[in-house]
């Protein structure tokens, strides 16, 4: 016996498929494009830290390496900001409050790193010390915020990346200068790029 829904022309299976299709569309449109975001940050870290490594090895002027590094990070910040704003455009409520609180966490964290450096500069810090501490403190903030974000949104990949970033950060401290930049480039940037690649493959497999 096939139950036709009174008054409607959809079978239960068709109605359920319609619900799934519509909700999938909403989630895809409003959710972040993980491949884009992890890919962008992976490329920025991979190339940026590689430039710093090469600059410290004398392959190019330190100013050039620093400027390229800063430019890549700035570009990644802009991509992330624009993408998040566009994806969540027109949505208000609990999730935008959570997102704003989390977003401020980044600003406050890096503000604090800046203040620590300003304070260290006053008491005196060598170039080698600042070359080690700069990325180490920044990645501590990044790693912890990834842990927090992963826990907040119950995103195991994000949490796992947080663990990976902290582990990379810890290992880089023992590679010395400029070896730490090579570790951050390959393991740090590479970690993001691997995560992006994994999501890109999975998306292709899942998509019809």
């Amino acid at each position: 016996m096939t139950e036709r829904l009174d008054g409607g022309d959809l079978s239960p299976a068709e109605s359920l498929a319609l619900i799934e299709q519509q909700q999938g569309r909403v989630e895809r449109t409003l959710g972040p494009n993980i491949v884009l975001l992890y890919g962008t940050w992976g490329a920025a870290w991979f190339l940026g830290f590689a430039m710093l490594y090469l600059a410290y090895r004398g392959a190019l002027p330190l100013v050039v390496g620093g400027l390229v590094f800063a430019g890549l990070l700035l570009a990644a910040i802009v991509v992330t900001g624009v993408h998040s704003a566009r994806a969540t455009r027109g949505v208000r409520g609990v999730s935008s409050e959570v997102g704003a609180m989390y977003g401020w966490g980044w600003l406050l964290g890096f503000g604090c790193v800046g203040a620590i450096f300003a304070g260290l500069g006053r008491v005196g810090i060598t170039d080698e010390q600042s070359a080690l501490l700069g990325p180490a403190l920044s990645l501590l903030v990044v790693g912890l915020l990834y842990l927090g974000g992963g826990a907040l949104w119950r995103d195991r990949v994000q949490y796992g990346l947080g663990v990976w970033i902290l582990a990379t950060d810890a290992v880089s401290m023992f590679a010395g200068v400029p070896g730490n930049y090579l570790v951050l480039s390959i393991a740090g940037g590479g970690g993001f790029l691997l995560a992006a690649a994994w999501f890109a493959v999975r998306r292709r497999v899942v998509a019809p």
Partner: peptide, 15 residues
């Protein structure tokens, strides 16, 4: 279905 896909406590602009 679309509105149910939002997190509870969220609202979406008409357009």
């Amino acid at each position: 279905a679309s509105l149910a896909a939002l997190s509870q406590g969220d609202r979406m602009a008409f357009p």
